[in-house]
Amino acid sequence: MFTGIVEIVGVVSKLDIKDSSKSGGNGVSLTIKNAAKILEDCHIGDSIAVNGTCLTVTEFDEDSFKVGIAPETLKKTCLDQLLEGSKVNLERAMAIGFRFGGHFVQGHVDSTAKIISVKPDENSLWFEFNVLDESLMQYIVPKGFICIDGTSLTVCDVDYQKNTFNIMLIAHTQENTIMTSKAAEDLVNIEVDMLGKYVGSVVQGALSSDSSTISSTIKQLIDIAIDKKLESLDKK
Results as ranks from 00 to 15, higher is better:
100 F>S: 08
144 G>M: 05
173 T>V: 05
194 M>R: 06
144 G>E: 06
143 K>N: 08
8 I>F: 07
215 S>T: 15
90 L>R: 09
206 A>F: 03
157 D>T: 10
133 D>W: 04
47 S>T: 10
116 I>H: 07
19 D>W: 01
59 E>V: 08
96 I>W: 06
105 V>D: 00
186 D>S: 03
184 A>F: 00
229 K>G: 10
73 T>K: 05
54 C>F: 03
174 Q>A: 08
228 K>Y: 08
184 A>E: 02
125 L>H: 10
27 G>I: 01
214 I>N: 06
20 S>V: 12
106 Q>W: 03
179 M>I: 15
5 I>D: 02
149 D>E: 14
126 W>H: 12
75 K>Q: 13
166 N>H: 10
10 G>I: 07
27 G>V: 02
38 I>W: 02
218 I>A: 10
221 L>I: 06
15 L>E: 04
222 I>K: 07
45 G>Y: 12
93 A>D: 01
236 K>H: 10
64 S>I: 05
210 D>R: 07
8 I>N: 12
61 D>Y: 03
78 C>D: 09
100 F>M: 14
227 D>H: 14
122 E>S: 12
114 K>C: 09
114 K>Q: 14
58 T>K: 13
96 I>Q: 09
12 V>W: 03
143 K>T: 11
167 I>D: 10
193 D>Q: 04
82 L>N: 08
56 T>F: 06
8 I>V: 15
218 I>E: 12
189 N>C: 06
97 G>F: 00
119 K>N: 07
29 S>P: 02
22 K>N: 06
47 S>A: 13
108 H>W: 01
9 V>P: 00
228 K>R: 15
63 D>N: 15
194 M>L: 13
73 T>I: 01
15 L>K: 15
225 A>L: 10
101 G>F: 11
56 T>M: 09
85 G>I: 12
113 A>G: 07
120 P>K: 09
33 K>F: 00
233 L>V: 15
18 K>C: 10
223 D>F: 14
214 I>K: 09
158 V>C: 13
19 D>A: 03
176 N>M: 04
12 V>P: 02
79 L>R: 03
109 V>Q: 10
178 I>R: 05
104 F>M: 14
115 I>H: 09
137 M>I: 11
126 W>F: 10
166 N>W: 04
100 F>G: 07
130 N>D: 12
210 D>C: 07
118 V>A: 01
23 S>V: 11
146 I>K: 01
185 E>T: 12
219 K>H: 14
94 M>F: 13
190 I>G: 02
25 G>V: 01
67 V>P: 01
123 N>G: 02
96 I>M: 14
76 K>Q: 02
13 S>C: 11
57 V>S: 11
168 M>C: 07
136 L>C: 10
193 D>R: 01
219 K>S: 15
153 L>M: 15
227 D>V: 13
228 K>W: 04
90 L>Y: 07
91 E>A: 04
173 T>C: 00
122 E>Q: 11
166 N>T: 00
190 I>V: 08
57 V>W: 01
72 E>P: 05
103 H>R: 09
120 P>M: 01
